[in-house]
């Protein structure tokens, strides 16, 4: 400051502007406005603020306030910023459908919407799996179905609860389990798997796998999945995996084993495949190798049911658009997407 009087004049001049047309953001400058807006912790408030006037719109969008809030509310989003901003894996309805944004402002507009949806729509879920779809093989469809793996307990009032593969002479055979997640867009951070421990003739073998790997992706034809549902077992999944995890060793221990993905994954499509790579335990009675799993759990966030996710059916696969429906839906006709409400 040079002289006090000089500063006074400046401020008085500003004050008269303020009185005729007070725009808080213009008057306070970016730093103080930023301070006020940083106290808003609901993305809906930020989006509404962006509709107040063009200067508020510029301020909220150009400063990426929705992204900042999203990262504050869901820190694990920072691991998927690349797939959101560089790979343009999804759009919010009403966006420019193009994958290239000529203007910086267009890209900022897009990010504003995308991060607002993520910050608001991604809700934490204890287990993101909604449905067990099929297994590569099942020993006994009545007592050892893959649907048992959604039950956290390994013993219920109906007896032991687990899935068992068929017996194999070759311990290197890979078995798979296929699941549908609650929404077609999920943020997955961890997958927990518990092998099953049997009780036979006084011994208690644990039928774990040697190693485990996870794939996330989508099916070409979700309708087909539903029709195949009756077929029980399926060796080849016709879907496209957009994510494949590293191979994790599995221990032969009867506990919920935690497999943390190296980075959180934004999964489009809503399908999870658990690959059980090789077996370690022979069954005493028939001398064959089995893999048995009592529980599978996906830790992460699912998209609120008020948002409908549409998959892009041409390359790049896995991209999708998100559309808002004010009333939670129970069935999205036409794409075979069934949500459990």
């Amino acid at each position: 400051m040079t002289t006090f009087a000089c500063n006074q004049d400046l401020i008085l001049e500003n004050m008269s502007d303020v009185e005729t047309n007070l725009d808080l953001i213009q008057w306070l400058g970016d730093d103080m406005s930023f301070k006020v807006f940083s106290y808003l912790d609901n993305p809906r408030d930020l989006v509404r603020a962006s509709a107040v006037s063009s200067s508020w719109n510029d301020f909220v969008i150009e400063n990426g306030l929705c992204k900042q809030l999203c990262l504050k509310l869901i820190p694990e989003i920072s691991g998927v910023v690349r797939s959101i901003e560089v790979d343009y894996l999804f759009k919010v309805d009403g966006n420019n459908p193009g994958y290239y944004y000529a203007e910086k402002r267009e890209l900022l507009n897009r990010n504003h919407r995308v991060y607002a949806v993520l910050a608001f729509g991604l809700i934490p879920m204890n287990n993101c799996i909604s449905q067990a779809i099929c297994a590569s093989s099942t020993n006994d469809h009545l007592r050892e179905s893959y649907t048992n793996t959604l039950e956290p307990r390994d013993i219920t009032e109906h007896g032991a609860s687990y899935w068992s593969s068929i017996g194999q002479t070759d311990p290197s055979v890979t078995e798979t389990l296929l699941y549908r997640l609650y929404s077609r867009m999920c943020l997955v951070t961890d997958i927990h798997v518990q092998p099953f421990q049997g009780l036979i003739n006084g011994s208690s073998p644990i039928y774990s796998a040697k190693a485990i790997r996870f794939r996330l992706g989508w099916d070409n034809d979700p309708m087909e999945i539903d029709s195949k549902f009756g077929l029980r077992d399926k060796t080849a999944f016709s879907g496209i995996w957009t994510y494949t995890s590293p191979i994790f060793p599995m221990s032969q221990e009867n506990k919920l084993q935690h497999f943390k993905l190296p980075e959180p994954v934004l999964c489009f499509g809503g399908f999870l495949q658990v690959e059980l790579l090789g077996s370690v335990q022979k069954h005493e009675e028939d001398d064959l190798f089995y893999i048995c799993i009592s529980h599978v759990k996906v830790v992460g966030r699912v998209l609120s049911q008020n948002f409908i996710v549409r998959m892009r059916m041409f390359p790049p696969h896995g991209a999708c658009s998100v559309q808002y429906f004010p009333h939670a839906h129970t069935r999205w006709c036409g794409c075979g997407y069934v949500s459990n409400s």
């Binding site: 962006s50 009403g94 608001f120």
Partner: peptide
């Protein structure tokens, strides 16, 4: 304004 509201309708209820 109509476009803004339409694009992010979920924030206006």
């Amino acid at each position: 304004e109509a476009k803004l509201r339409e694009e992010l309708a979920w924030t206006f209820t």
